[in-house]
Amino acid sequence: MNLGSSNSLAIETEDLTKAFGGRNVVDSLSLHVPAGSIYGFLGPNGSGKTTTIRMILGLVFPDRGTVTLLAAKDPKERRARLSRVGMLVEGPAFYPYLSGYDNLKRFSQIALPAQRHLDHSLSKVSKSAIESALERVGLLEAAGKKYRAYSLGMKQRLSIAAALLWPRELLVLDEPTNGLDPQGIVEVRELMTTLQKQGMTIFVSSHILSEVEIICSNIAVMREGKLLFEGSTQSFRGSLGERFELETADVGLAESILSGLGLVEPGSLVIGHDRITAKLTTEDIARVVAALVKGGVGVRAVGKTSHSLEEAFVNMTGRSSSAR
């Protein structure tokens, strides 16, 4: 999983760990985000994605481990690099009593003087820069409206506009499609592709794979603070393989027989309401069915399935025998 020297990584974390209330929310996480990629950071809600993003951005202090952001490891240098990072963290947040335009103005006013001594390439953000950022996300007409009057989708767009106020090397987008209608989701996806083509690295988190899968070049999957997979989207698909599927009313019994006889790969067992899927350790399905029948399991149907990426994702992150 070595993706090359750290020089070509936009974000690298090593052994990153954070506990809240005695529970490891992020557990020994090592991520490698290649520069120039669209990196899909996937996992169900509560899997530790947001905490990871907060640690990368310096909002939360890790208990253990390191973060390297745009080749900067020292916290102070890392903070300086943030001016080259656009972001959306856990939804939009602006002052409800200011207009969209005033919010962006405040953001650039407060951000730029603070950054100028860190990064001399930055200059004052002009009125036209604010307007063009608003135009890019289709908010120019609503620029004078108070933020509190914005719809959820408009709020989301405004934070993307804030990330586009000045040139960035990296975009960190936490669930950017939340609250957007299908049309908006498509637009955000197109925007990400465009920005990547301009040379930006895009780190995008989502709990819904299908929304980002199409555009991602790399994928990482998290569950309960642990990294389950990291690699190219292609290798993610390849790792799936064929699965055995059993339909029965006796899922509990079937599970114990399959596990007990060592017929399935440990950890691959996924149990549904009246359905079990798993990776078999043997090619001989007949032998498996015989064992089940002998054990008294009412077998309704068996088969082999080849999963879509979405199903694989659900299988990987959803309820499985190892989580019980």
């Binding site: 202090f61 890790p62 208990d63 253990r64 390191t66 973060v67 490891k73 020292d74 916290p75 890392r78």
Partner: peptide, 8 residues
């Protein structure tokens, strides 16, 4: 490991 300073 300077990153841990604040916490420590």
């Amino acid at each position: 490991m300077k990153m841990l300073n604040v916490k420590a």
